[in-house]
Design a protein around this nucleic acid. Structure first.
Length: 229
DNA sequence: TCCCAGGGGCCGA
DNA sequence: TCGGCCCATGGG
């Protein structure tokens, strides 16, 4: 946080999803649970679209979907598969992802999870049971769309910790290793910490701890790292 | 031209 | 459980 400042994730792309904020994009220091169904659904769609995909390619899809009025469960389900695939083409894997988005929309709709007023939250097991939603996507949706205090572990998290400690850690070990940061804290605090944890791992992974040629010369946590340098 | 990106499903050891 | 393969576009 000292190195990069608060990220204020999840990045919101559309105007309708960004109510109460002046600009699109990040919303620093706002760790509130999404206040609109549009925003909640946009976050969940983005979590699927960004699977193994650069965010800049996802952003285009979310803007296209918004223009088509499809950041809405019923309206997304009303689209033909071909139309939906065309709208999300730039995120790659577009046939699979079109199916995943509809699966999610159907699930939200049938259980009322898309309605912010209902204040009901899906369980992790429910999300994992859906076709196309694995651990990272489930945890991202829980944390950023519903405010559930869970740690999101992604490729950046694993790579950065592996380099810091000089050995690969299992996800279980990563959870144990980072658990002291949230232990004994109020849920609201945990939500803020976990929100930033994932966002900062992504920031550090993109700007410094790249897979191929990490920029160790400008790395602010080099002193604690076992390499590579 | 090749590598990489905020994964996940599926299959055979 | 675990490795390998597939899905697919776009930028460096």
């Amino acid at each position: 946080m000292e190195l990069y400042g608060p990220r204020g994730w999840w990045p919101v792309v559309t105007d309708a999803g960004n109510q109460g904020h002046d600009a699109k994009g990040y919303h620093p220091l706002d760790y509130s649970i999404p206040a609109t169904a549009h925003r909640r659904f946009e976050i969940a769609l983005g979590a699927i679209l960004t699977q193994n995909t650069a965010w800049r390619n996802v952003r285009l899809c979310l803007e296209s979907l918004d223009e088509a009025g499809a950041i809405d469960m019923q309206r997304l389900l009303a689209l033909s598969d071909e139309r939906l695939e065309a709208l999300i083409r730039s995120s790659g894997y577009y046939r699979q992802k079109a199916r995943k988005l509809k699966t999610l929309a159907r699930f939200f709709l049938e259980n009322g999870y898309g309605e912010v007023s209902a204040a009901s939250t899906p369980s992790r097991e429910e999300l994992l049971s859906l076709w196309g939603i694995g651990e990272e996507t489930a945890d991202s949706i829980l944390l950023y769309a519903f405010g559930v205090p869970v740690l999101v572990i992604d490729a950046y998290t694993r790579r950065i910790l592996a380099r810091l400690k000089g050995e690969e850690l299992s996800d279980r070990e990563i959870r144990d290793y980072l658990s002291s940061a949230t232990e004994g804290k109020a849920v609201k605090q945990q939500r803020r910490i976990l929100n930033e944890f994932h966002a900062l791992f992504v920031e550090h992974g993109k700007t410094r701890c790249a897979k191929r040629s990490p920029d160790c010369d400008h790395c602010g946590i080099k002193a604690w790292c076992k390499g590579p340098f």
